[in-house]
Amino acid sequence: MFHRIATAAFLWAIAASCSAQDYPTRTITIVAPSAPGALSDVLARLIGKKVADTLSGTVIVEDKPGASGAIGSTYVMRAQPDGYTILLANGASHGALTALSKTPAYDPIKDFVPIARVGETQLALVVSDKLPVKNAQDFLTYARAHPGKLSYGSFGHGSAGHLFGEIMKKRNGIDMVHVPFKSEADAVQAILAGQIELAMLVSAKPYVDQGQVKLIGTTSPGANEAYPGWPTLTSQGVEGFSQARGFQAFLAPAGTPQIVVNKLADAISGAVADPEIRRQLLNLGVTPANETPKDFPALYRALVEQWRSIVRESGISTD
């Protein structure tokens, strides 16, 4: 009996190895844990097309929004670890969210294998044109003179915008009311309608470029290639943003064969390095990744820990 089980396991291992060698032989699904048209969806389609060309295969994108990325992430965690279902994760889904709860649905380190990073994202503090401020110090002065009178929007409770808004309040002696929205577009519409005065946004660039909102500064710790000429909040004396690094990165379910991970990593890194894709990433407000695939796992662990630290400082919990 034991001999038959051992033989079956051995044959299965050989079959799995051969299958991994031939990867891909069928459609690869990229799960974007966001709504259609959101940044994760756009990035998944942009990178997915190039990956399909590189691997001579077919790549589709499936949007699974909800619960700040938990729905899509849980779906991928439970998928077969064969490389045919992968996730485009971000700082919210695999940094903040799992640190906000004492009983998270998944572990960002144990339940996933890092493949490659697309790039770094930052938030921007934007305000209504009607707010009589021109820069961060003007804003802090106004906020301190009107405690509890300003409302700031974000794309959900426990989102990066919510976390940084609460940290900004704590570290700079201001009091604002948080108003969560289902999307950043909804938050911008609320600013235009006069329902809130400001928001913390990841996809701020188009709204600023179109003049719909007024830029105060980005959460980037330093100058950022994706936001040339945009001032940082840190450079304007706002406390709390020395370690603010968002990310968009591809992950696979734990147990995915390393040969498959390597093939995907090379294809994704090659896509990110493509000059035209790089240009599009910068236009979207994403600073393209420049590390090699072999260096990404250590960076991923560091980014997850960074977000855990940010959550602890914010004092926010979903429990």
Rank of each mutant, 00 (worst) to 15 (best):
V213K: 00
T29Y: 04
K102G: 15
L88Q: 10
L201E: 07
K149G: 03
R312D: 13
Q280K: 15
Y227K: 01
A273T: 09
G255Y: 11
Q212N: 12
Q280W: 04
P33A: 05
D63N: 15
G66C: 03
E313T: 04
S17K: 11
L123S: 00
I196R: 09
G148T: 10
G95A: 10
S203L: 13
M77I: 13
S154F: 05
I14T: 07
G72W: 12
P231D: 07
K110F: 09
D129P: 13
P257A: 12
D82A: 10
P180I: 11
A249H: 05
P65Q: 00
Q210F: 13
Y152E: 03
T287K: 14
S269Y: 07
W230I: 11
A289M: 05
T287P: 09
A193Y: 07
Q189M: 14
T121W: 02
A254I: 06
V238Y: 02
A44G: 11
V272I: 15
K49N: 14
E184L: 04
A249R: 03
E120I: 15
G148H: 10
A79Y: 09
T98N: 07
I60A: 06
G165L: 07
V261T: 08
V118M: 10
A289F: 07
F139N: 03
I268Y: 06
A143Q: 01
K50F: 02
I268N: 10
P231Y: 11
H157W: 12
G165C: 08
S40Q: 14
I259H: 01
P297Q: 07
G161R: 09
I71E: 12
V213S: 00
A13S: 14
K169L: 04
L125M: 13
A302Y: 03
K263H: 11
L123I: 03
F250P: 08
T287E: 15
L215I: 04
S235N: 04
P228L: 04
I277R: 01
Q189E: 13
Q236S: 12
G211A: 01
G91L: 08
P108F: 05
K130H: 14
V61D: 00
